[in-house]
């Protein structure tokens, strides 16, 4: 009997940090079982009792992080399930495939990475508004389970526990790499707001906050808003690798990609330009509150490092994640099999 293989980060794992189950499944395995993404999510839901967020990955596609870094692979559908069931209206959301278009690249300049680094791959970020049953958030909800921001921020809506799983960390789980586990802290709290403008984006459906602006818009408050949330991310070396790839493709923080502290730190130490003048007053106030002042950005690093040197010293250079511990993804995620009805 064919069963659907998936990876499960169980509720209570990561030393109690996980507030719900998170199930990650490869689209290739879904197809092997002859299932649609929606039926695959239903099969996984049935195999688990508690609140669960489910993401389906196309490892051959490409996506963007909220700060505009392009990453190989993509979430193509997300779901939330509870007590084995997916809510018939709000529990499953497919992501929109974004068609390549020169006009689109002009409006969303971070997509120049698509040409340079990921040519020919299908692009997915958030859902098409026509497929969204919930008006504002890009979210799937069933019972207690909530899978938000296009599959990167999961919550139990009764206990109100939450976990942030930035995209690259999930990709590492799918690819059997390493993950960094800890708490978000002030750096990531600010970083979350440093988005880029995207139609059908991961967080926003419309092009609301350009590179150099902030979605938080709350000055010193921004560093406290998401500072104590469990976080499962990629190792800093892997995260740095994707940022370097974007910078080497000509992406300028503040102009093309968001001013997340990790992006700024790497750009500065490698001597890549930062468009300080394009950073809004509100975004700068948030960056100031965690020490990333305009003066700091303008100062040249004492010594510019090469990509290899940054990767070797990534834990020291890339800021963010409090109390970080790195482990193999296979130590965190279990392989499970769902019966197919």
């Amino acid at each position: 009997m064919v069963k659907l293989k998936y990876k499960l980060v169980p509720n209570g794992s990561a030393e109690g940090k996980m507030p719900l189950n998170v199930a990650l499944v490869n689209l290739k395995d879904v197809k092997v079982c002859g299932l649609t993404p929606e039926k695959a999510c239903a099969a996984i839901a049935k195999s688990l009792d508690g609140p669960t967020a489910i993401n389906i990955f196309d490892m051959e596609a490409v996506t963007t992080t909220s700060d505009g870094i392009m990453v190989d692979s993509a979430i193509v559908a997300m779901a939330a399930s509870d007590r084995g069931k997916i809510h018939r209206e709000y529990g499953f959301v497919p992501m929109a495939e974004i068609e390549y278009d020169d006009e689109l690249i002009a409006i969303e300049p971070h997509l120049k990475q698509w040409d340079t680094n990921y040519k020919g791959r299908r692009l997915y970020r958030g859902p098409d508004v026509a497929d969204k049953k919930i008006p504002v958030h890009n979210v799937a909800i069933s019972g207690r389970a909530c899978n938000n921001n296009s599959g990167t921020e999961m919550m139990d809506l009764v206990t109100m526990g939450e976990v942030l799983m930035p995209y690259i960390g999930q990709k590492e789980i799918m690819a059997d790499g390493e993950v960094a586990i800890g708490l978000t802290g002030e750096i990531i709290s600010v970083a979350i707001g440093m988005t880029v403008k995207e139609k059908f984006g991961r967080v926003f459906s419309t092009r609301r906050y350009r590179a150099g602006d902030t979605a938080h818009g709350s000055k010193e408050m921004a560093k406290t808003l998401k500072a104590e949330i469990p976080c499962i991310a990629a190792s800093k070396r892997v995260h740095a690798g994707y940022i370097i790839k974007a910078l080497q493709a000509g992406m300028v923080p503040g102009r093309d990609i968001g001013c997340a502290p990790a992006v700024l730190a790497i750009a500065k130490i490698m001597g890549f330009p930062i468009n300080v003048e394009n950073i809004t007053e509100m975004a700068q106030a948030e960056l100031d509150s965690i020490g990333f002042t305009a003066d700091w950005m303008r100062e040249k690093a004492e010594k510019h490092l090469t990509a290899e040197e940054v990767l070797a010293r990534a834990d020291e250079i890339v800021p963010g994640i409090v109390g970080m511990e790195v482990c193999k993804a296979s130590e965190l995620a279990e392989i499970r099999y769902a019966e197919i009805p």
Partner: peptide, 25 residues
Amino acid sequence: VDMLVPTEDIYLVDCEQVVDRRPMM
């Protein structure tokens, strides 16, 4: 401000029979 709240399922878990008379959205 937007609030995310659980769906109705949290009130129905102990019911053996649920007759859903709502039209789909």
